[in-house]
């Protein structure tokens, strides 16, 4: 039932918005992980980021793609939390930092054990439109003791113009979605954070919507 709801939501509402109202300049589609367990690390500018990344997958695989999202934001009221859990299928995570790591990431590990593909925004929040914020280390704590999960970096640009933080009016823009190669296994958190940051900057070179005159 949930699966059907999700498919309907994406087929009727999300996909027309992503592919017609917006529009993607997609590069590196062959790098997109097709089988879980896997982790996508993307930069974050807009609520649309999640919807765009999920639209890259066929409807039949949608239930396997799980965005990791802030519990304090998405579970703040009943409607939003019903929507986030059932229509999108998020894995809620607490940003308060009072929990122990094992507890904190239990939901993520459970999903990865099932063979799901996780979407994570290592910048933590959407920040200023189209600016990269500092990359947080949480992602390392999820993947470092798993031998089966690799991180695929994805750089997006343009969505922060289409629907930036705090705006309700969606303005059509094409956006770049550049999918990089899987990152090698990292020894330390710094190594992983730097690896993600470097590949974001590298992938940014292929964006065509961020030129300055």
């Amino acid at each position: 039932m949930d699966r059907l709801l999700k498919i309907l939501f994406f087929a009727v509402i999300v996909r027309p918005i992503v592919f017609i109202v917006l529009g993607l300049n997609l590069r590196g589609k062959q790098n997109l992980p097709q089988q879980g367990p896997a982790m996508i690390a993307a930069n974050h500018n807009s609520h649309l980021d999640t919807l765009v990344l999920m639209s890259l997958y066929p409807l039949s695989k949608l239930h396997r793609v799980r965005p990791v999202a802030a519990a304090d934001y998405f579970l703040k009221n009943r409607f939003l939390s019903w929507f986030a859990l059932n229509c999108i299928g998020i894995i809620p995570i607490s940003r308060a930092g009072r929990q122990r790591k094992a507890e904190l990431f239990a939901g993520c590990h459970q999903a990865l054990d099932q063979g799901d593909i996780l979407i994570l925004f290592p910048e933590g929040s959407r920040g200023n439109p189209e600016e990269l914020s500092e990359i947080k280390r949480g992602i390392y704590h999820i993947v470092h003791d798993r031998t089966d999960t690799r991180v695929t970096p994805v750089m997006m640009h343009g969505l922060g113009r289409a629907l930036p933080r705090g705006e309700a009016l969606l303005v059509p823009f094409n956006c770049d979605v550049i999918i990089g190669n899987e990152l090698p296994e990292a020894e330390t958190a710094e190594q992983l954070v730097n690896g993600i940051k470097e590949s974001f900057l590298e992938l940014q070179k292929y964006c065509i919507t961020c030129r300055q005159v």
Partner: peptide, 24 residues
């Protein structure tokens, strides 16, 4: 599609979002 592509590649200010909406 053409207007959208134009606005996407040619830099516009973040402040102009609502103006672009009226252009559409």
């Amino acid at each position: 599609l053409a207007l959208k592509e134009f606005f996407s590649i040619v830099p516009t200010r973040q402040a102009d979002r609502r103006v672009l909406f009226w252009a559409y």
